[in-house]
Structures are given as structure tokens and as C-alpha cells.
């Protein structure tokens, strides 16, 4: 019964995330009825723009110029998140891809870095007056949710181990729409639940920034009007 409910919750959150993503993409692709407004100097070719944009996406170049401390925390936060995602692939693939096996240790380290950098971001938000002034309750709530998911993940790995085989069987069974039993350990249940909430809110919140960036004329429009 519990496993079925959890499965339903996960189906629901994944569906909402997918539908929301499609909706937000549809909205972003609407035509612009106004003059072009690239932020200059901007490249003249789309290839040049991609190159410049890649600096933003992979190196957070503008942020580096703006605020060094924030850049460090945010960059570590996002890179470790990427490795955590890669590491988690082993729960979703069978047989597990060899490169995913290779980076398991790196993924664990990334887990700690991620946890620490989220704390740094929360601390920054609480301490700096200029940041505190613009922070809404949801800004704090996001960081708390992320720290909660990350802590419960680390706890499962290092303190309250769960039956990992049973967990993986459950996850793989989701794709057959015949959910098996979920492990009964509280921490892993909370971890999965938190991740589900994150999925649901992803398209409708500021978490969308990673995709929204690609629709900002200041970062994507080339300069070739004349």
C-alpha cells in the first residue's frame, strides 16, 4: 500500500515536471514583437554566441566578474550537483554504464561539496544585508529543502544504510508500472519525497533559471541588425 502511494506520488511529480517543462518551453518560444536587444559587445554569428554562452553556462563568467565569493559557492554547488546526478544514474540503469561505476567515488565527494556549498549559500543569504533585503521566504525555503535532500542522501549513504538492492528493484519496476516494495527506512523515504517536491516545482519556480537563461536576449541575441 505504502509503496503504491509512493509510486503514484513519483509518477505524479514526474508528470507535472514534464508537462510544466513543455508549457514553459512553449511560452518561451513565442515570437517577440519588438526590436532586437542584444547586450553588446555581442558576437556577430550564432557560433560565436554559442561559444560565449558556453562560458556563461560552464564557467559562470559574468558572475565571476560580479562577486567572487558567490561565484565560488554557486559554481561548486552546480558542478557537484552535476556529479551527484551522474552518480545517481546507477539507480536507474541496468546494467550500470561503466563510466557511471567509474565516477561513484567522485559522486560521493560531490555530495559533501554540494552540502557544504548549499550551507554557504544559505549563510550568505542570512548574513549579507543586501541579499537579505531581497530574499523572500521561498528563497530560504528552497535552500532548506535542498539542504534537507542533500543531508538525507548523505545520511543514507553513511549512517542509516538502506537495502539498496530493494530500492533499485523498486525504481526499475516503476518503468513497468508494477511497483515492488519500497525499503521501509525513514531517511530514504524522506530523501525521495524531497526530490519529488523539487521535481514538481522545478518548471514553475526560480529553479527554471538554468533553462530560462537560453531565452534571454541579452545572452543569446547576436548583433547583426545593420
Amino acid at each position: 500500500m505504502f509503496s503504491t502511494s509512493l509510486a503514484l506520488f513519483l509518477y505524479l511529480s514526474l508528470s507535472i515536471a514534464l508537462v510544466g517543462t513543455v508549457y514553459k518551453l512553449w511560452r518561451a518560444f513565442r515570437p517577440q514583437h519588438s526590436f532586437p536587444r542584444p547586450l553588446t559587445p555581442s558576437p556577430f554569428t550564432h557560433l560565436g554566441m554559442l561559444w560565449k554562452l558556453s562560458h556563461e553556462v560552464f564557467g559562470f563568467r559574468s558572475l565571476l566578474r560580479a562577486d567572487k565569493f558567490l561565484w565560488l559557492s554557486a559554481w561548486l554547488f552546480h558542478v557537484s550537483l552535476l556529479f551527484i546526478f551522474f552518480r545517481h544514474l546507477r539507480y536507474f540503469t541496468y546494467p550500470v554504464w561503466s563510466w557511471v561505476v567509474e565516477i561513484q567515488n567522485l559522486g560521493i565527494w560531490a555530495g559533501w561539496v554540494f552540502w557544504a556549498s548549499s550551507l554557504l549559500l544559505l549563510l550568505r543569504r542570512c548574513v549579507l544585508p543586501r541579499v537579505r533585503y531581497v530574499s523572500t521566504p521561498s528563497d530560504y525555503a528552497w535552500l532548506i529543502l535542498i539542504i534537507f535532500i542533500s543531508s538525507s542522501g548523505l545520511l543514507t549513504r553513511f549512517v542509516y544504510h538502506t537495502d539498496i538492492v530493494q530500492l533499485k528493484v523498486f525504481i526499475l519496476s516503476l518503468s513497468q508500472f508494477q511497483p515492488t516494495n519500497f525499503p521501509t527506512d525513514t531517511i530514504i523515504i524522506l530523501h525521495i519525497f524531497g526530490a519529488g517536491i523539487l521535481l514538481i516545482l522545478f518548471p514553475f519556480s526560480k529553479l527554471w533559471h538554468g533553462i530560462g537563461l537560453f531565452f534571454h536576449p541579452t545572452r543569446t541575441q547576436i548583433d547583426k541588425v545593420r
Binding site: L63, A66, D67, L70, A74, V134, D139, K206, L213
Partner: peptide
């Protein structure tokens, strides 16, 4: 939609 209130600006 996409501002994260990071205050870099």
C-alpha cells in the same frame, strides 16, 4: 521568472 535573488547585481 528567472531571477534567483542572488544579488550579484
Amino acid at each position: 521568472d528567472n531571477c534567483v535573488h542572488c544579488s550579484a547585481c
